[in-house]
Write a protein that binds this DNA or RNA. Structure first.
Length: 292
DNA sequence: CGAGGTACCTGACAGC
DNA sequence: TGCTGTCAGGTACCTC
């Protein structure tokens, strides 16, 4: 799934392309991805005619601020990606705005489309159909329990070292799991957590409570560093993620550990290892990332 | 309460 | 070939 840099790249692309447009219709062949309001028919009725005033991100959610005090929230989960294209109503296909070769089989997995008033569309492609779409009253969204409970945004200026320590304070668990929890810090997933821990030279299974002040400082810097690199490079596309033009992000070559099992550590030459815990894989260098 | 497992889906790939 | 098992960028919900 897209993590913070991929979602940020998506928001940037959407802002450039669809700000101030109005929704004229919506299509889906997997209507249950719309969780709010209670059914797709009602969603269709309510979204039609709403204008896009703002597009922003909170944690890994893409949020469209709409006219009439509404907000459209889309979470792309593991394999979703949003793209802007032109209408092709014969078969509900995504077509890029500018014709050209795209290696994708995007349309096989196109399950949701928002049609705009300029003959363009926002298309959601999602192999695993985990993505969710919700239309909220904006005030209710901002006041909702799950929204308020989200952790701080690591790329905000307000996310100081002090705020970072505050977020981790009292947490038990292993450091990788803790920093991936969206209710501790927003936006960090399986790739960027492994990458940040490599830069900080911290073992992913080390207890977060056992981190020294020096390690905390390193980790704080490393999180900002890898997320900034991800944003600068338009995200990573090791698997399904694509930007709004259907193209790949460029972070893949920056990976130091993620999906590099048995390859050499770029720092010390040891073989990168993979361990499973918390239901996820962690990649790390057993030699230079200390101990658990 | 926190930790851990499972559910939601489909596809790619390894091994037999 | 075709089966089975594992894994894949996330998170919500359940049980212990």
């Amino acid at each position: 799934m897209p993590e913070l840099p991929e979602v940020q790249t998506t928001v940037k692309g959407l802002t450039a392309k669809v700000l101030n447009r109005t929704f004229v219709d919506v299509w889906s062949d997997w209507e249950k991805m719309v969780k709010k309001p209670i059914n797709f028919r009602l969603f269709r009725k309510e979204i039609t005619g709403k204008k896009i005033n703002k597009i922003w991100r909170r944690a890994k959610n893409v949020i469209f601020g709409l006219s009439g005090g509404y907000s459209l929230l889309i979470h792309m989960k593991m394999t979703g990606h949003l793209m802007v294209g032109v209408w092709n109503m014969k078969g509900n296909k995504w077509l890029p705005e500018k014709p050209g070769p795209l290696e994708e089989k995007i349309n096989t997995y196109l399950h949701f489309m928002l049609l705009l008033d300029n003959k363009k569309m926002i298309a959601l492609s999602d192999v695993r159909k985990f993505a969710k779409v919700e239309l909220w009253n904006t005030e209710e969204l901002l006041a909702s329990k799950e929204f308020l409970a989200l952790g701080p945004e690591p790329m905000e200026k307000s996310f100081t070292f002090g705020e970072f320590k505050k977020a981790l304070k009292g947490k038990m668990g292993r450091v990788k799991q803790v920093i991936m929890d969206p209710y501790v810090i927003a936006g960090i997933g399986n790739i960027y957590s492994s990458e940040a821990l490599w830069w900080a030279k911290i073992h992913p299974q080390k207890s977060v409570a056992a981190l020294t002040e020096k390690e905390l400082k390193s980790l704080y810097g490393a999180i900002k560093k890898v997320l900034a690199a991800g944003i600068a490079l338009g995200g990573e596309s090791f698997a399904d993620y694509r930007n709004v033009d259907g193209k790949k992000g460029q972070f893949d070559d920056e990976r130091r550990v993620y999906q590099r099992e048995d390859e050499k550590c770029f720092r010390c030459g040891a073989n990168i290892k993979r361990v499973m815990f918390g239901g996820r894989s962690a990649f790390f260098c057993p030699k230079c990332q200390g101990h658990t």
